[in-house]
């Protein structure tokens, strides 16, 4: 397996800002052609991670290759696209001028851009506004233009930092379509989002980030969905009975008569019920439900303790 097999291969990337650590340890491989999502609370270090991979921020330690090239390689950026967290640009340019300029900076020829620019502007749904200056654009329209400039040069690897922020439902749908088109083209996409449902439908794999550390990665549409969350209605659950459950699950929580936990598979649910009944509890109701990404997120990342 060559390095080129991986679009991203990061080894223990670390970033310290004066006084605190933004990214503790980013070790990550993303195969070519995958759509990979970063999930994590505000300030977890998602944007900083992306910026390190893009060469905007210099890592304090660690190393990485992007499309086979070491960090800071300038030429490889011809094959990379980026939508920043808060896309800004000279607002006196028109939408067409802006996308064309970015295409030129990315190394495309004026001839290529003549047909490509109207196409991407069409793709992000701004054809009607293509000759208007960006000054008059709304936040969502700017975000769309940002997306257009990120993919205008048909990059092999696209970084999208919260691509759906500020977008209406139609816009979010458009982002999904763009992602699908990118995948069909064979591009690799790494994206940040707070919208778990977005990640759920678009990503092949997701990494959970907390306090600058990757706490887990999960393949979506794969094994993890067999994980089961169970809500149980039970009376008389003793502390000993609770402690005993730890054999099957680490996430059991008892609130009043409601016992919640997550397990790998439904098979163990019967064992847990047997255990509880054996320990003297009355079990009234057992409701297994497929864990949503949100449940996994909260379980892994924890409840919001404030920033």
């Amino acid at each position: 397996m060559t390095t080129e097999h991986f679009a991203i291969d990061a080894r223990q990337l670390r970033k310290e800002f004066p006084g605190h650590v933004a990214v503790r340890d980013l070790t990550l491989t993303v195969p070519r052609g995958e759509i990979f999502g970063f999930l994590g609370p505000n300030g977890a270090g998602k944007s900083t991670s992306i910026k390190m991979l893009l060469g905007l921020v210099r890592p304090t330690a660690g190393s990485a290759t992007v499309l086979g090239a070491p960090l800071g390689d300038v030429a490889i950026r011809r094959r990379i696209g980026f939508l920043p967290e808060d896309f800004r640009f000279y607002d006196w340019l028109t939408a067409t001028e802006l996308v064309r300029l970015h295409g030129r900076l990315a190394g495309m020829s004026p001839a290529q851009l003549r047909t490509r620019v109207p196409d991407v502007i069409e793709m992000v749904g701004l054809s009607q506004h293509r000759d208007r200056p960006l000054r008059g654009f709304s936040k969502g329209m700017l975000q769309r233009i940002g997306l257009a400039q990120a993919v205008v040069h048909e990059p092999d690897l696209v970084f999208l930092d919260e691509p759906t922020s500020g977008l209406d439902p139609v816009g979010r749908r458009m982002v999904r379509d763009v992602l699908r088109a990118e995948r069909a083209r064979g591009a690799t996409v790494l994206l940040n989002s707070h919208l778990l449902s977005e990640i759920e439908v678009t990503c092949d794999r997701v990494a959970f980030i907390k306090d600058g550390e990757m706490v887990a990665t999960r393949a979506l549409g794969g094994a993890w969905q067999e994980g089961v969350r169970v809500v149980m209605h039970a009376r008389g659950v003793s502390d000993d009975a609770m402690a005993g459950i730890a054999r099957w699950t680490g996430s059991a929580r008892l609130e009043g008569e409601e016992l919640r936990f997550g397990v790998e598979s439904e098979a163990v649910v019967a064992d847990i019920v047997r255990h509880l009944v054996g320990a003297g509890a009355d079990v009234y109701r057992v409701v297994p439900e497929r864990a949503s990404l949100e449940d996994v997120f909260l379980e892994l990342v924890g409840e919001d303790r404030g920033l």
Binding site: K51, L56, P84, A106
Partner: peptide
């Protein structure tokens, strides 16, 4: 603004 420029080749 620099982010989208400084990531170009």
């Amino acid at each position: 603004t620099i982010h989208a420029i400084a990531t170009k080749p």
